[in-house]
């Protein structure tokens, strides 16, 4: 890395993205505390629910939006957590970058899939694969 090391209160300032990532992890985990409690209550409500009860739950914008936010924050946090785990155990740069890229891709796809399903359920769309050639 180029440039002079910078200090704040005699502590070296992170030269790359480490400090920002650390803060993002903590903020995401902090958000997940209330979201997790809400998810636990929702899990209790929805356990054993039949199709009509479950779709009625998604018809409430409050539930749908909060579940979408939970899914994105949770999967984002988990992807950062996997990045830390991979960085701890894989030291060969090529393998490390490949595995982190793969894990990020998986969680990105999972987040997109969740939002896709939640949006359809919130809008009360016809059951899939309606609208996809069927």
């Amino acid at each position: 890395m180029s440039g002079y090391a910078q200090y704040k209160n005699r502590v070296k300032i992170s030269e790359r993205y480490g400090a920002r990532e650390w803060v993002v992890e903590r903020v995401a985990l902090l958000l997940l505390m209330p979201l997790g409690v809400w998810a636990a209550f929702s899990a209790f409500t929805l356990t054993g629910a039949d199709y009509d009860t479950a779709t009625a739950w998604f018809a409430s914008p409050f539930n749908a939006v909060l579940l979408g936010v939970t899914a994105v924050v949770f999967l984002g946090y988990i992807s950062l957590a996997w990045k830390v785990i991979i960085e701890d155990y894989i030291h060969r740069p090529g393998n490390k970058a490949l595995l982190i890229g793969l894990s990020n891709l998986i969680f990105l796809v999972l987040a997109a899939t969740s939002i896709f399903f939640i949006t359809r359920l919130a809008l009360g769309s016809a059951p899939l694969p309606a609208g996809f050639g069927a």
Partner: peptide, 25 residues
């Protein structure tokens, strides 16, 4: 973290079953 990753996939599977209609659900 590892178990929650698997759990997330299961919950998304449940979302998918709902989105695919009553029979899948």
């Amino acid at each position: 973290i590892g178990a929650a990753s698997v759990g997330a996939i299961l919950v998304i599977g449940w979302l998918g079953a709902l989105a695919f209609g009553p029979e899948a659900h």
